[in-house]
């Protein structure tokens, strides 16, 4: 088994040569892509370098409070992203709170379960394990929840007449919104289902690749990857279910009316 090959910063500069080449082509062919390409590459570089420094500091400090603070910042960014990815969202605080709450509840539950029950680092919150795990789980749950809510709200707003037709025929609010709910759940689950189906056949998952590159036995890397995928699937599922049910509960009332007035108008 070969050891770990560390990269120098010059290696990175060399690696970016093809990207720079693309920018040159874009300018030569007048594609207008050079600017966005360079800006996003620079932005990514700055973000990742900073994250590297911050993670290093947190790992070095080994403090529960810094770890929690980092997790909170990650959750706040994810919450903002869920809000931004919905074309129609609930009005008031629930516009950000409902999706974020479902994501956080499902994400924290699954992360804690994995840390305390499966990986069992010492101490349990050890940032080397807790932060990357929480990040992966949060990211996937965030995608699922925002897709689910966006689909649900669009389906209800565009299908108002169909939902009300079922209400008028004596359906309860849950019966009347069933088709919209099914659509929302399907779209929230799709990314994780696709990821599970394609994983390993076309590309190796990023985390597994990382472990293999750092010299871990592929069979061990596969075990870790499988555990992560199960956790991601579980957390996404819980988050999507929770968010869509809570949103339907909010967008209907006890007199079984569809309350689209509780969707924010844009």
């Amino acid at each position: 088994m070969s050891g770990y090959q560390a990269l120098t910063y010059w290696d990175l500069v060399a690696a970016s040569i093809f990207l720079v080449l693309n920018a040159v082509f874009s300018i030569a062919l007048n594609l207008g892509l050079a600017r966005t390409l360079i800006v996003s590459a620079l932005r990514m570089t700055v973000q990742l370098v900073l994250v590297g420094l911050i993670l290093k500091a947190i790992f070095f400090a080994g403090s529960l409070w810094w770890t929690l603070l980092a997790a909170t910042v990650m959750a706040a960014f994810a919450a903002r992203e869920i809000r931004a990815r919905q074309k129609r969202r609930l009005d008031g605080l629930l516009g950000v709170g409902l999706g974020a709450g479902a994501m956080l509840l499902a994400g924290s539950l699954v992360t804690l379960y994995a840390l305390a029950g499966l990986i069992r680092p010492e101490p349990v919150w050890q940032p080397q394990y807790a932060l990357p795990l929480f990040g992966m789980i949060l990211g996937n749950t965030m995608t699922g929840v925002s897709l689910g809510l966006d689909t649900l709200h669009t389906a209800l707003a565009q299908g108002k007449r169909d939902v009300e037709a079922r209400l008028l025929l004596g359906g309860t609010r849950w019966e009347a919104t069933r088709p919209a709910l099914r659509q929302a759940l399907r779209s929230g689950f799709t990314p994780i289902i696709n990821a599970m189906a394609a994983t390993g056949v076309v590309s190796l998952p990023g985390m597994m690749t990382g472990q293999i590159l750092s010299g871990i036995d592929p069979r061990e890397a596969v075990k870790y990857q499988l555990m992560i995928m199960f956790l991601l699937g579980g957390a996404t599922g819980l988050g999507v279910l929770g968010a869509t049910f809570a949103s339907i509960w909010r967008l209907t009332d006890t007199r079984h009316r569809l309350r689209l007035d509780r969707l924010e108008k844009r």
Binding site: G159, K160, R161, D162, E164, A165, R166, L168
Partner: peptide, 10 residues
């Protein structure tokens, strides 16, 4: 029972 002018079909 209410039948709206434009009915819904799911």
């Amino acid at each position: 029972a209410f039948v709206p002018a434009e009915s819904g079909w799911w």
